Simulated scan of single mutants.
Amino acid sequence: MAAVEKRRQAVASAASRAAVAAADSEEDFLRQVGVTEMLRAALLKVLEARPEEPIAFLAHYFENVGLRSPANGGAGEPPGQLLLQQQRLGRALWHLRLAHHSQRTAFNNNVSVAYECLSASGRKKQPGLDGRTYSELLKRICRDGEAPEEVVAPLLRKIQCRDHEAVPLDVFRAGMLTCFVLLEFVARAGALFQLLEEPALAAADRRVAQAALDSLEGALQAGDGANVPAHYLEAGSRLGPDGLALAMQRAAAGRRPCVPMMRDEFLGKAAALFIAKVKPVG
């Protein structure tokens, strides 16, 4: 009986060692092919973005993560370079939208990944980002944000780079942040205009609208010492409702017949107040 028990223990011990070895081998395999690191990165992205639908978020993440691999931007000059460039732009945009710009750490991490997606890596090019690609991404962000072209054009002229100019990461990060903040600023200005608008005319009284713009400009002055565009957005959001209401009330009390202000004009003037605070590239 003792001999049988010893053999049974030996078999169990060998099976246990085999299971441990198999587990170690599987773990090593997953680590070697990059799956472990990929899953870790995906989970970190979920924690950063905290999406409402995590499973859908992960599905989109794994669908879009492929083009960042060396096989899709490696040593050779792949055919269909233009198509590949558009794919990289789409990939960069996807990463930039993973977190709101107010989530500064997550947003900056995503900016770095987007920069990596767009960096040239062909045999005839040094790693880095050229001004043409950077400027194209700025235009895509503004176009997808549905801001009027005449509103964003002055900003793009300020922060674009020359086509063949090398764009460092800090310039890239500042440009991305500025575009996203401008889009949100314009959206808030649009919401403000809705409060002033006379529905029957689809326009606002010019004096009342100008009073609102003057109050907005005064709020933005508080951000003169700040170098980050988001500070101007925060200054505008702190626009005192009492002060704004009083300014509009005074304008309305003394108003005489005048040409109404349309939405596009109001948004253009509001955006100009913001853009005046943005430092040009270089």
Rank of each mutant, 00 (worst) to 15 (best):
M1Q: 14
A15W: 10
A23D: 11
E26H: 07
E27D: 13
L30Y: 09
Q32A: 13
T36F: 03
A42N: 09
L44D: 10
A49K: 01
R50S: 07
P54F: 03
I55H: 06
E63W: 08
L67H: 04
P70M: 02
G76I: 00
P78G: 01
G80I: 00
G80L: 03
Q86G: 11
A92C: 15
H95C: 13
R97F: 05
S112H: 07
S112E: 15
V113W: 15
A114S: 14
A114I: 12
L118V: 05
S119Q: 10
S119I: 01
A120S: 12
S121E: 00
R123Q: 09
K124A: 15
G128P: 12
D130Y: 09
R132F: 09
L137A: 05
L138A: 07
R140T: 12
G145L: 06
E150F: 14
E150L: 13
P154W: 02
L156T: 03
L156Y: 10
L156G: 06
L156K: 12
R157C: 09
I159R: 00
H164K: 08
M176N: 05
C179D: 03
F180A: 12
R188L: 14
A191S: 05
A191K: 06
Q194L: 01
L196V: 05
P199Q: 08
P199G: 05
L201R: 14
D205E: 13
Q210H: 13
Q210I: 07
A212N: 08
E217C: 14
Q221L: 05
D224P: 04
G236S: 14
G236C: 09
R238T: 06
R238L: 02
G240T: 11
R250T: 15
L267V: 04
A271T: 08
F274Y: 03
